[in-house]
Write a protein that binds this DNA or RNA. Structure first.
Lengths: 222, 222
DNA sequence: TTTGGATCCATACGTAAGTATAGTACCAAG
DNA sequence: CTTGGTACTATACTTACGTATGGATCCAAA
């Protein structure tokens, strides 16, 4: 289900046309242009074809925006199960997006020009290649580390953290928690960054179920 | 007239924005999107800028077609040379990534599994469409807002913030600062979130140079 | 002084283009 | 036979979005 050879004929033809017309024109085609290229009389047929392709995860567009139709790398997204055995990922298209332009450093005293830069801040494209996933934080157990309720932490799968790293740990009762990890004599310590909260101790004799290490944080601020 | 540095400032900025937005979105921007990215209020200004660029042979579009604007010649990050031979190759349109898979909420007490999810955390792809840029924070003026030294703030161009929004302001001495913005009687107040620091006041009679509003924060944590 | 370019603003109009709704026909699988 | 998918048709509505027209200010060059 990943190749155009296994799509219905007209869907495969639409997919190829989107790609080729986009390359030729430098901008995506409209439904009318696709219809014309296929010898159809109205846009609705094409709309139905692209809707079917969208359901299959092969194209995407911004609803309501003109000429926003584009082919997605061809991979449909797969659910990620932390508790299950990790599968080897199929090859995915490497994102070409450059991320957000870096405008410099603020409070450093130098003027800002938002566009005089070759540097870019990349977030999902930085982490997406290594199986990272995101979690939304609930609660204030790590508030003194600047991890607030509502923030998103980016987690890199790693079952063997080093001391002092902030980890996602799954406890005996299957609840997940975000804490700083320490391996001590005879036990593991999961340390909150909130002076009103106590650490969690897990005996060394128990299997410590660490899902990963926090590698980044994102916060929406408006 | 060899490089974009020798275009008038705004024309050079438009040219770069067309390229970067096209790459990031996968389709060319509209005049309105360009206007927003530049902090302008209406499309006509941008139209005039692109018209000037078109006269200089740097961009082209199909008259009357929506979203057909493209840069002529050159690679996205390369300086554009007017005097050299160039191909009329439009900027290429790229597939997009979906961002980081969301694994749920941590500390909510429920197991993390459940990744039958269609949700993705998008950062640069969320913001890239509106001309946002990133700044690296230096100092601790907003530390009580959870904005730490070394963090990256994501800034959306907006010359007219509302009270209480965290803004990037350029002061008289051309230094940039990150503060919470308040318009008061007879003056503007730029409020730090650090009890050891004083607010900055700017008289209303002075032009308040706001580059934009902080819409997001990113922190590398390992 | 005049002219042209750069840069910003506004409103109004008309077309481009997506979407909604409705219909038909054919084929394969259950 | 029923159902779902594929594939085609039409009209109508709505929003997106480019363009026209008009205005202003500032600056540099002739």
């Amino acid at each position: 289900m990943n190749t155009t050879e296994q799509l219905p004929p007209r869907q495969g033809e639409v997919l190829k046309l989107i790609t080729s017309l986009t390359e030729q024109q430098g901008y995506p085609p409209t439904l009318a242009e696709l219809a014309q290229a296929m010898g159809l009389r109205n846009r609705m047929t094409v709309h139905q074809h692209v809707a079917a392709l969208k359901k299959k995860g092969l194209v995407q567009w911004e609803p309501g925006l003109n000429r926003s139709l584009r082919v997605i790398g061809g991979q449909s997204s797969e659910p990620i199960s932390i508790n299950s055995k990790r599968q080897s990922k199929p090859a995915s298209v490497t994102p070409i997006t450059k991320g957000l332009p870096m405008a410099g450093t603020i409070a450093a005293g130098n003027p800002i020009d938002a566009l005089e830069t070759d540097e870019y801040l990349e977030v999902e494209s930085r982490y997406a290649g290594s199986g990272c996933f995101a979690l939304k934080v609930k609660g204030e157990s790590m508030i003194e580390e600047g991890i607030f309720d509502g923030d998103f932490v980016i987690v890199k799968p790693n079952p063997s953290p080093t001391n002092g790293e902030i980890v996602v740990a799954v406890l005996d009762d299957d609840t997940a928690t975000l804490k700083r990890f320490y391996k001590e004599k005879g036990r593991y310590r999961l340390q909150p960054a909130n002076k009103d909260m106590e650490p969690i101790y897990v005996p060394s004799t128990q299997e410590m179920n660490i899902k990963g290490v926090v590698v980044g944080l994102f916060r929406k601020m408006s």
